[in-house]
Design a protein around this nucleic acid. Structure first.
Lengths: 146, 146
DNA sequence: ATTTTAATGAGAATAATTCGCATTTGTGCT
DNA sequence: AGCACAAATGCGAATTATTCTCATTAAAAT
């Protein structure tokens, strides 16, 4: 059985080349937000003769067809993720580099409200929280009594 | 009388060269969010022999000393502004390119709340609204009866 | 005025991404 | 199965914002 991305490529009228299958597989198996370089490493582990040009070209095509999304976390390069879920925002762990996803309805409302004040409609937005783990105590989610 | 930036350079122990004075002047007079290239054009109009290296180096130093701030609005290059006011967020007009600044207390509260849910403290954030002017009617601010 | 030390200019270097083009490969049709 | 053609690939060169190197110059301190 083929993955979501392959099906979507078909729907979008894209040729299913071996390279694309490899890239699609890597992307759909990723649980993180890999950069082009990280993707390239994972790809060459499967198909050592895939080229970086092809990877970049494919990433672009997949983004144009809304199959994936790219993000810029200010590192000087992009990170990618499959666009399965609804759009969401990101919290970047400054210590580990981990990326957490969230979607808060208040935030959606608030951004529209703010834009309206200026006489605008929001087309898209970018919300990123750069944060460090709370050290003093446990997080709210897993609190233990001290 | 010298501008804010020159004073701050002094305080930071930076030499006040002619080039720095020029760059400081341009920056303090800017009401927009100029890119390095735009700044370079404005600088060379005053001092044609200033070099791009110097501009970039100075921008970096000024940012390191918190005298200016740089932003990445996803255009592939940075934009700069004097760090006089409190930190704020930006609404980017997708039609004209204009940048509006805002600061909403609810947003500040909300971001801390969201981070806490994950067990984090927010160190810094990035909130950008990319928007288009409301076409159908006037903006809330300047409504006229139709 | 002299010394010290940081800043400048010019161009080379970097790094992520894109492009040009000759070659290859899916895909649809017969 | 075999063909034709558009689309995709791979290689290396090009692009672009920014940084670096290093010899020269200028500000600041003595």
């Amino acid at each position: 059985m083929e993955n979501q991305i392959e099906q979507k490529c078909r729907d979008a009228g894209l040729k299913l080349t071996g390279q694309r299958r490899t890239i699609a597989k890597i992307l759909s198996e990723a649980t993180d937000h890999p950069s082009a370089n990280e993707l390239f490493e994972r790809c060459t582990a499967i198909d050592p003769k895939i080229s970086l040009s092809t990877l970049y070209r494919t990433l672009r095509v997949l983004e144009e067809t809304q199959i994936i999304r790219s993000h810029d976390f200010g590192e000087g390069y992009a990170r990618f993720e499959v666009a399965t879920k609804d759009p969401h925002d990101h919290l970047i762990d400054l210590v580990s580099g981990d990326v957490h996803e969230f979607n808060h309805p208040d935030l959606e409302r608030l951004k529209q409200f703010i834009a309206k004040e200026f006489g605008y409609d929001v087309v898209r937005h970018r919300v990123e929280l750069y944060a460090i783990p709370i050290k003093s105590s446990q997080s709210k989610r897993r609190r233990i009594r001290s």
